[in-house]
Design a protein around this nucleic acid. Structure first.
Length: 426
RNA sequence: GGAGAGGUGGCCGAGUGGUCUAAGGCGCACGCCUGGAAAGCGUGUAUCCGUCACAAGCGGAUCAAGGGUUCGAAUCCCUUUCUCUCCGCCA
């Protein structure tokens, strides 16, 4: 949620910065400004009435105590009138408050100055590229065929027991998943992140706190009977660890990591994007989250980018980093870098990580603050990134490392796998 | 799922209609004391909103959450929620 102070101070600047997202926010921002004024005026009036009301109640108390109860009658009458007025004002204030919230949650985060303008994925800037987008010699099989040939993943039985997008990993496939999770977690722990195992379902408050509600309603699975949501990423429960809290500045940065399955409805996806492991309703991911000060958050973003880069290097996967353009930037993010790995048989880049600085957009909703050196409570900056999402990593590993001798396991993963090379079953 | 008991400040804990502007204690911060420290003594110590210079001061709200009764609610009533105890079920 955007800080209303920015709009009070300089609404034109807010409107102009949102143009990077191809958004004409002028109507929204101006209405918000008006509603904010209405709300504050109603608040002031209500406070004044309550102040008088409180004073009268105190005086009546005094009168009763000194045995002049009958003199209180006139004051009670006045009190009754005030009460009525207060009720009306409270209603007006509630209405203004509700409209205020309805409007403010529709304003996305202000893009960082580095964010390029653009409409779609095609306009993202490639800021770094390492390793070749190679074409394998001979007949390279896509991962869904390799998965079948090596008996690693059963997509069909997953469809039977749940539905499309819920694969069943098997044998070396399941072991490779487990190895990747362990490897990613160990890398994060070595980098100073504390491991957590969070709940996989969250309540409405949590989903609102990190921006899934109301913005991305429909992307999450909703358990109606208990009004809980299956997490689309561990970012949600992990960041919400710090909801409604005031941290000490000396405890920052807070660095957390968690492995979790992620659940996404992905309504409307189709075609080659959903083939094999490319887009699933349930997948595994190791997430990293940082909470830090505004002064340090962009250094933290760089650190997280370095971390993801290091992990990809160890996996020996060709990758590139793109800076998301305004049109592709998530609602809550100020600046996002995507990591993509080369998928040799599909001959395309697959997104495996997204690292973002949310500045105060999440913390404003979460009421996540820290006490600064001068004793003031200020909103912290939150950041998160995938380190990493498993399915497309698995797809790239299978496709890129296939040969007549089997599928080679990268050296860094061999500590976590029983074999250095996956052979055909049977 | 059934029955009962509860939810008070960073923590413990008093408080059953008006000096609650929430006692007392612990913790923490600062000061005094000390060669230094401990102890002791003193002072301070929640969050949010408004006014305003995002200062001070002043006003408002907050005793799990929401609603109600009352001139006045931490205190009484209703609903929700969470915790604990017992029973049931159970990995």
């Amino acid at each position: 949620m955007i800080d209303i102070q920015l709009i009070r101070d300089n609404s034109e600047d807010v409107i102009s910065r949102l143009k990077t997202r191809n958004m004409d926010a002028s109507d929204l921002v101006n209405r918000l400004k008006d509603v904010d004024a209405v709300r504050r005026q109603a608040q002031k009036q209500l406070d004044d009435i309550l102040a008088e009301s409180n004073a009268i109640a105190r005086q009546i108390g005094e009168l009763f105590k000194s045995g002049k109860g009958q003199e209180a009658a006139a004051m009670k009458e006045r009190s009754g009138i005030l009460k009525k007025e207060a009720k009306e004002l409270q209603t007006r204030l509630d209405e203004a408050g509700k409209e205020f919230m309805d409007l403010i949650v529709r304003i996305p985060n202000l893009p960082h100055p580095l964010v390029p303008t653009g409409n779609s994925e095609a306009d993202n800037q490639v800021v770094k590229s390492e390793g070749d987008a190679f074409k394998p010699e001979g007949a390279a099989l896509p991962h869904w065929e390799l998965a079948k040939a090596y008996d690693l993943i059963d997509f069909e039985v997953g469809t039977k027991i749940t539905g499309a997008g819920f694969p069943v990993y098997k044998g070396r496939g399941a072991q490779l998943q487990r190895a990747l999770i362990s490897f990613f977690l160990e890398e994060a722990i070595t980098a100073g992140y504390t491991e957590y195992q969070p709940p996989l379902m969250v309540n409405e408050d949590s989903a609102f706190g990190t921006g899934q509600l109301p913005d991305k309603d429909g992307q999450m699975y909703h358990i109606v009977a208990d009004n809980l949501f299956l997490i689309p990423t561990a970012e949600v429960p992990i960041t919400n660890l710090f909801r409604d809290s005031i941290l000490k500045e000396e405890d920052l940065p807070v660095k957390c990591t968690a492995y979790s399955p992620c659940f996404r409805r992905e309504a409307g996806s189709y075609g080659k994007d959903v083939r094999g492991l490319n887009r699933l309703h349930q997948f595994d991911k190791v997430e990293i989250v940082q909470v830090t000060t505004p002064e340090n958050s962009y250094a933290a973003l760089d650190e997280m980018i370095e971390h993801v880069t290091g992990v990809l290097r160890k996996l020996e996967l060709p990758y590139r980093i793109t800076r998301l353009c305004g049109g592709d930037l998530g609602f809550a993010a100020a600046l996002t870098y995507d990591f993509e790995v080369w998928s040799a048989a599909q001959e395309r880049w697959l997104e495996v990580s997204s690292v973002s600085n949310f500045e105060t957009y999440q913390s404003n909703r979460l009421k996540l603050r820290y006490r600064s050196a001068n004793g003031k409570n200020v909103l912290a900056h939150t950041l998160n990134g995938s380190a990493l999402a498993l399915p497309r990593i698995l797809a790239a590993l299978l496709e890129n490392n296939q040969s007549d001798d089997g599928i080679a396991i990268p050296a860094a993963l061999q500590n976590y796998m029983a074999v250095k090379n996956i052979q055909k079953a049977g």
